[in-house]
Design a binder for these strands. Structure first.
Lengths: 343, 343
DNA sequence: TTGTAAGCGTTATCAC
DNA sequence: GTGATAACGCTTACAA
């Protein structure tokens, strides 16, 4: 019952044939007698043969494996993305490594070395952007990769799939402004991150278009991982900062902000209107109806896989991919939409 | 710049030494001249050498890789677990494959074959429990594995780490009963799943202890993946089913139930008290304060990794592991706790 | 201290 | 149709 792994050689010995013949039979090569093929296939099933992909990979140089490197799979945004990537990859017979970085530089570097060492065929990474060096490592080692969710403006050779962050930031802010909230707190991500910068651009554009002054003291950087958002919102409330609308870099931060508002006895949307980013509600039906910016994670993930596989299969292609997926405003209760059917 | 991967041979040629010497130097073996070692290490760095773990694995039979097989990484419960497993594994220099099954039998089987084919050193799996055959496959192939979250009572040889589901079900139900909710709707998971059955046992025990009759019509199975919960709760509300408390198999189902209640204009906890399971709120600060049963996902994940690594490193050990992690009641607003500080 | 040879399990090539 | 041989990149045992 409890067996060591069955190899081609085991089958060959048992069948009185050569390893080679066994291999070819299992792979349905043309030049094998029908009878032999059947014999071997039955035997393989009987003995519970499972091919050793490792050995094949060593020869072919391909592992049918890709690495997905993100800060934190426990964040629903990344959880959803990883799920979608895995699903797309699986359709093409690829398996994924998942490696977390906590958006830390050193961990990211190690993650990349791990991936290269395991001979992945390619990498999908949401870079911490603490430095472009880690990504240059990939270029240097000739490992195909695609950035997802973030990009390096100064590195035109790094392919990416992002969403239209500027537009998202614009739509969110404009909606709050249009609803009469002239003082919008923006709980932004760290400014090293391209999406944080671009969403901020959108925020500012909305303000400019509305002819309202931008209040720099209402633009605050939050470290996403740390639960930093709660601390910051608490402080703001205690010092009675002057705002009525909140735009958050992502839904997790928006939830935390709403959580603190609740703790302090404030109502959403009556006292404060809140809008997030990522539209996680489309996948997770939470009883708190958070307005958000939809960024089509499913589409982004699929696209990233498609591009990566193309690069893997066309190593000499010099095309570069800079895909920007559209974003859209999704209104729910947290910004006081009247009873509608969205969500 | 853009290079093919550098191999030991490349280094050897460049250094005018044998592949073997290079290998030993990089591994800090004793019998290498200090000068040679330095020469080679510098060269390796310069040329950007990253070892090919594949080749070594083929020899050693170990890949330093484990597979994590779960139904759905986008479910925060599994997202958190995968994160914790990855973290623990990484500490021991293991990398994880993540494969989703949607709790589907065939996909689970394929996932297992994939894992075996990729020569993982071990597997952590939350089984769909549509059949024990898939898991027997693992036993048959001699691949170390640990079940997480679910167990097969009829298969005493399958090691597992679960939480005390019966106690959790008991605590949740008892709390609702104690709070005056005599008719508790139980939105349970599919009964093929051990944790669903055991939580139900706890539910029943609480009822028995309270001396109240168990209403079988208030015990309903929900398919977790499908968003089934929303449909079911809607139906119940429309036919004005008779209950005031809801105990849900997990937090995702609880959220969906609360979501529907909200849509129908009901208040939580005034009209309905709700309690979930998994205590995701401990990781994600949502503005909806859901009472829940804590099951120490961090502890479970770590324990699963520890057991698995032990089994990998002691293949001849015959110990079996049946770990049951304690569960605890965590009260929040959704069951009407008075203002306290939990959260 | 360093080099040579063999082998991990598979597959591609080329004989037979 | 089938079998022998080499090769993928590395490590272990042993020889020099």
């Amino acid at each position: 019952m409890e067996g060591k792994k069955v190899t081609l050689r085991d089958l060959a010995v048992k069948a009185g044939l050569s390893v080679n013949t066994v291999s070819r039979a299992l792979k349905d090569k043309e030049d094998i007698a029908e009878s032999t093929r059947k014999l071997i296939k039955d035997l393989a099933k009987e003995m519970g043969y499972v091919g050793n992909a490792l050995a094949g990979s060593l020869r072919s140089g391909l592992t049918k494996t890709i690495a997905v490197i993100v800060s934190d799979v426990a964040n629903p945004h990344f959880g959803i993305m990883v799920k979608d990537i895995e699903k797309s990859a699986r359709k093409h017979n690829y398996t994924i490594f998942v490696i977390g970085t906590e958006d830390d530089h050193e961990m990211e570097e190690r993650a990349i070395y791990t991936a290269i060492g395991k001979n992945v065929d390619g990498i999908i990474i949401c870079p911490s952007q603490r430095s472009a060096d880690t990504i240059r490592l990939l270029k240097k080692n000739g490992v195909p990769f695609v950035l997802i969710g973030r990009r390096f403006e100064e590195e035109p050779e790094f392919d990416y799939v992002i969403c239209d962050d500027e537009k998202g930031g614009y739509l969110a802010t404009k909606h709050l402004l249009d609803s009469g909230h002239e003082r919008v707190l923006y709980l932004n991500g760290p400014s090293r991150i391209s999406s944080a910068r671009e969403r901020l651009d959108g925020y500012k554009r909305a303000y400019r278009e509305a002819g309202l002054p931008i209040r720099e003291d209402l633009i605050i950087d939050v470290e996403p991982a740390a639960g930093d958002a709660r601390r910051i919102v608490k402080q703001l409330l205690e010092r009675k900062a002057d705002f009525t609308g909140i735009f958050a870099f992502n839904d997790v931060i928006a939830w935390e902000a709403a959580y603190v508002l609740q703790k302090y006895g404030h109502r959403v949307p009556e006292d404060y209107a809140i809008i997030g980013f990522d539209n996680i509600q489309s996948r997770l039906f939470l009883p708190f109806q958070l307005s958000s910016i939809s960024n089509s994670k499913g589409k982004m993930s699929k696209r990233a896989v498609d591009i990566l596989l193309y690069k893997i299969n066309h190593p000499d292609s010099t095309e570069t991919y800079r895909d920007v997926i559209d974003t859209a405003l999704i209104l729910r209760d947290s910004t006081g939409r009247s009873a509608s059917e969205q969500g």
